[in-house]
Nucleic acid binder design. Structure first.
Length: 374
DNA sequence: ATCTAAATACTCAAACACGC
DNA sequence: GCGTGTTTGAGTATTTAGAT
């Protein structure tokens, strides 16, 4: 465990008792570095313990390293507390940089022009509409807690004064309604990875050196991987709109736009309508379940959003998902059987996946195309 | 030069999927 | 059930940059 010493010796690890003792000392010192003689004394004490005596000599440097790392870890953890420039502006839990789960919007929108978003059309029934707003300070998107006021500037679009969720009045901002307010993006659950397709606009959690925020990004590619008990492990190659940087991110960093809801609805409808057995066989014959649906209008320029083929939650290896412009021609759908493990299906566009791993709900095939550089 | 903070490098163990 | 390969998290070592 741990990086082995450069002299090739065995890996070193502090025992639980030693860790407990050092933690106590660290606490006594209020998270400050103990004096050198304290570290030396600890090292000597550990070296003299029955477990180590004659076998392993604990160096003062090792004790010092432990304190350094521990202090850093503690600070890093505490710095994740809410704060606009903190590492996780909208954490869902301690471990994942996921946005807040939907919560009913407490404050209704102010009465404003028709360009101001309002609850109603387009929103799923019995779910309160929520919004997110783009901060002018850092260009990142934040959940809107309240709309406090609104104003009309003759020279430009209407603006609203927003209170960002989790922040105080000092962070309130006037934002352009037309450009910088929109329905809230949705954190993706494991089974929803199938609704994230290349070309899509998403809200993506970007972790920088000093801050980690949600920015607009476009999906360049999707690598479908086997789901396990931890959930979706697919990877998405994205390009951030604000700095054009590219990154491979897991689903947990992705929030999809509500405009893609229809995909999930269609997939759910298909799953309900088709018995599992039939789904397996019919999916082998791809055309039965390949449907044409428009890609989200906001994500792809009009001329590109012709017909996006979306396949039900089907495993895909080496996924370059079907190009946005592809029209399905059943005649071009071929089947091959040269892949290890059974029959394979070639999707239009050359995507191949083995039929023996098809399940009814989740992608279950891993692929390599984006891991090669790892 | 030394100290410190922060980040990265590196390895191991556990958990898991898969094939046999 | 067993062996193997992969992935992930945890823990320690090392490096780098800035401050003093």
């Amino acid at each position: 465990m741990g990086r082995p010493p450069s002299n090739g010796g065995p890996a070193f690890r502090f025992t639980q008792a030693e860790v407990a003792e050092m933690e106590a000392i660290l606490q006594e010192h209020n998270n400050a570095m103990p004096a050198r003689d304290v570290l030396t004394a600890l090292a000597e004490k550990f070296s003299e313990s029955p477990d180590r005596k004659g076998k392993i000599t604990v160096q003062m440097k090792q004790v010092w390293n432990w304190f350094q790392n521990k202090r850093y870890a503690i600070r890093a953890k505490s710095s994740k507390a809410p704060g606009k420039l903190s590492i996780t502006p909208m954490p869902r839990d301690e471990s994942t940089p996921v946005r807040n789960m939907p919560q009913p919007m407490a404050t209704p929108m102010p009465p404003a022009s028709d360009s101001v978003p309002t609850t109603g059309k387009g929103a799923p029934e019995n779910s309160a509409m929520e919004f997110e707003a783009k901060s002018g300070r850092d260009g990142a998107w934040y959940d809107v807690a309240n709309f406090l006021s609104h104003r009309h500037l003759e020279t430009s679009d209407p603006e609203v004064l927003v209170r960002f969720a989790g922040f105080g009045p000092e962070e309130d901002e006037w934002v352009n309604v037309r450009r910088n307010v929109r329905p809230r993006s949705l954190p993706c659950e494991s089974s929803e990875c199938v609704a994230v397709l290349p070309g899509d606009l998403i809200l993506c959690f970007q972790e920088g050196k000093e801050q980690a925020l949600y920015f607009d990004a476009h999906v360049l590619d999707a690598q479908r991987r086997r789901h396990d008990v931890r959930g979706c492990r697919c990877r998405f190659l994205v390009r951030y709109d604000h700095d054009q940087s590219e990154e491979i991110v897991p689903l947990r960093k992705v929030c999809r736009r509500p405009e893609t809801d229809y995909r999930l609805q269609q997939l759910h409808a298909m799953n309900e309508a088709t018995p599992v057995d039939q789904q397996k066989t019919s999916m082998d014959l791809t055309p039965v379940h390949v449907i044409k649906v428009p890609s989200s209008a906001e994500t792809v320029p009009k001329q590109q959003s012709v017909n996006t083929a979306i396949v039900p939650p089907v495993p895909q290896a080496n996924v370059s998902l079907v190009p946005q412009t592809m029209n399905i021609d059943p005649k071009k759908v071929e089947a091959t059987s040269d892949m290890k493990g059974g029959n394979t299906i070639v999707r239009p566009g050359g995507t191949v996946f083995p039929s023996n791993v098809i399940t009814s709900g989740v992608p279950v095939v891993s692929s390599q195309n984006m891991d090669e550089g790892k």
